[in-house]
Each structure stands twice: as structure tokens, then as C-alpha cells.
């Protein structure tokens, strides 16, 4: 038995230790790794009617991946322009949502972490309680606010800002707002956690030496908060890129989210192998993107866990 395992069992006892270990293994292997592996397996198989599954035609193929890039065989175009466009637009939008979220949440997290008093607890509660409402209802609430005859349009037209109602939904503003709002807490809390442990004297020391607020943030607070920022950004990016409810409800008619394509393949076309291939491409691209950005910003994997 390796040493860390022996230490683990010494600390927790054999009974409790086995139960905890069993649950963790079941969670990671049974609920995450095996289903993903089976999706990976699906993605390399042809879409066959049930009787032919396991038959002579059930051979591994790259067909599903080719489809994303080149479209249907003998199609009119050289590339699957429609799906590819949705794919990169989803990624870009997810990056934008993440950046927007960061700009919004960093000041809030800083304020929460560096201010004392009861009102901070109330503020935190006000941030948390809306999340008791489920995601779909929150998305519909935003639709009501942003709709053509919604609260916001009534207000803006009433104030004379616009002559005619502005179509927030067709212009994707509702979608960005919805996605941004959906993951605010996942951005705020990791940053809050890190900044809370920042010694306030460091801020005062920088200030005492004549630093402006922007410089204090750039040189002292943000470098310190980097693990929290990267952890928050990773989560928000991954979840936005993989979101389904918000794009479904708040997206304009012309703007599909890549997850909606995946959903269509699984559900409407009953083409699980094709859906699986799309899902694998999204997952792998997102992971690679995150790893590349972590390299650029010199973030370690261990920092993400902070």
C-alpha cells in the first residue's frame, strides 16, 4: 500500500476511510469518467438503427468529426460554415461574458472582502438569495425585463432615450446579461476568498508610498488575487460555453449557441454519435483554451483550487 494511502487509513480508520474513498471513487469514476468515456466511444461510431449496433457496420470512424468541419458529404459547401460559425461564436461570446463578469465582480469582491460591518453580510445575502430561484425562472425573468414591451424598454421609451423599443433579445444583450448574471457568484466568491486574506497593511503601505488606487490594484491586489481570478474565470468560461438554458430562453432567433446544436443532435435528430462528437470537440477546445490562457498568465493548476 503506498504511504499516502496508509496515512489516510491511519487517520480516518479502515471503516470510515473505505466508505469515503469508495464514494469519491464512485463519484469520479462512475459518474464522471465512465460516462465521458462512453460519450467519447459514441463519437467515433456511426449512427446506426438499434438492430445493427454491434453488427458488421459498427466500426470506428471519424465521420462525425468530419461532419463538423466539412458538413454533409456531397454538400454544396466545402466547409460546414453554419456549425463552425456557431462554434467559434460561442467560444468568443463565452470569453466576452467571462471578461464582462470579471470587470463587474472584481470591484464587488474587493469591496466585500476589504470592508467590515454588518451591511457586508446583508449584501452577500442579497447576492446569494436570488440563486434560490431556479435557473430557468431567472432566465424568463430577464426575458420579461428585456422583452420588446418589457420593463426596461417601457422605462427607456418613457424617458425618451429611445423612440421605439430596442430589441435587446435580437441584439444578444439579453443573452449576455443572462449568462453574466447566471455565474456572478462563481466569479465573486473565489476572488473574495483570496482578497479577504490580503493584509490590509500592504494596501496602506503602497498608499503611503504614494501609489494611486489603480496602481495599488495593478501591483498589489490583482497579483495577489490572481489564483481567485483564474479560478473564477475558468468556472465562468466553462459554464458559459456549456450553458443551455440561458441561450435557449434569452438568445435571439438567429443566434444559436453551440450547446443548442449538441442538444438538437441528441434530441431532435436522435443522432447520439454526432452529438457526442460535437460535445467532445467543445469540451476539448475549452480545456485547451483554458490551459493556454493559464500558461499565458502564469497560473498554476494548484492555484485554481484556491
Amino acid at each position: 500500500m503506498p504511504r499516502f494511502l496508509r496515512e489516510y487509513f491511519n487517520r480516518n480508520g479502515v471503516g470510515l476511510g473505505s466508505i469515503m474513498l469508495g464514494l469519491v471513487l464512485f463519484w469520479t469514476i462512475g459518474l464522471i469518467i465512465l460516462p465521458q468515456l462512453s460519450m467519447l466511444d459514441f463519437s467515433f461510431r456511426p449512427n446506426l438503427p438499434p438492430p445493427e449496433i454491434g453488427g458488421p457496420k459498427d466500426l470506428y470512424t471519424l465521420e462525425n468529426y468530419k461532419y463538423l468541419i466539412f458538413g454533409p458529404e456531397g454538400g454544396s459547401q466545402d466547409y460546414n460554415a453554419v456549425d463552425l460559425k456557431v462554434f467559434y461564436r460561442t467560444l468568443i461570446a463565452a470569453v466576452l461574458v467571462t471578461l464582462f463578469n470579471l470587470m463587474l465582480c472584481y470591484p464587488i469582491a474587493y469591496y466585500l472582502a476589504q470592508t467590515n460591518g454588518n451591511h457586508i453580510r446583508i449584501l452577500a445575502l442579497m447576492l446569494i438569495i436570488p440563486y434560490w430561484i431556479n435557473e430557468i425562472l431567472r432566465a424568463f425573468a430577464l426575458r420579461i425585463i428585456f422583452g420588446e414591451s418589457g420593463v426596461l424598454n417601457n422605462l427607456l421609451v418613457g424617458m425618451g432615450v429611445f423612440d421605439t423599443p430596442f430589441d435587446f433579445i435580437r441584439n444578444d444583450i439579453a443573452l449576455y446579461a443572462g449568462l453574466g448574471y447566471a455565474y456572478i457568484l462563481l466569479m465573486i466568491f473565489p476572488i473574495y476568498n483570496v482578497i479577504e486574506s490580503l493584509d490590509r497593511n500592504q494596501i496602506e503601505a503602497a498608499r503611503d508610498m504614494g501609489a494611486s488606487w489603480t496602481r495599488i490594484h495593478r501591483r498589489v491586489v490583482i497579483p495577489y488575487a490572481k489564483p481567485g481570478i483564474s479560478s473564477g474565470c475558468t468556472m465562468v468560461f466553462m459554464l458559459s460555453a456549456g450553458a443551455l438554458a440561458a441561450p435557449q430562453i434569452l438568445g435571439g432567433p438567429s443566434s444559436l449557441w453551440f450547446t443548442q446544436l449538441i442538444y438538437q443532435q441528441f434530441n431532435d435528430n436522435s443522432d447520439w454519435p454526432q452529438g457526442a462528437a460535437y460535445a467532445v470537440v467543445l469540451l476539448v477546445t475549452c480545456i485547451l483554451l483554458v490551459l493556454a490562457l493559464m500558461r499565458v498568465f502564469k497560473v498554476n493548476m494548484g492555484d485554481i483550487g484556491k
Binding site: 493584509d199 497593511n201 500592504q202 496602506e204 503601505a205 503602497a206 498608499r207 503611503d208 508610498m209 504614494g210 501609489a211 494611486s212 501591483r219 498589489v220 497579483p223 495577489y224
Partner: peptide, 21 residues
Amino acid sequence: IGPNKRPTALIFQNLALFPLM
């Protein structure tokens, strides 16, 4: 006149060196 504009420098009890610099 704020602390950043005074001709004073303060050494803190816990020193408050910047750990990442």
C-alpha cells in the same frame, strides 16, 4: 493631505512587504 501626498514613510508592525515582488 492624504498619506500618499505626505513626506512621511511608515514602517508597519508586520512590515507589510509585498510578498509577490
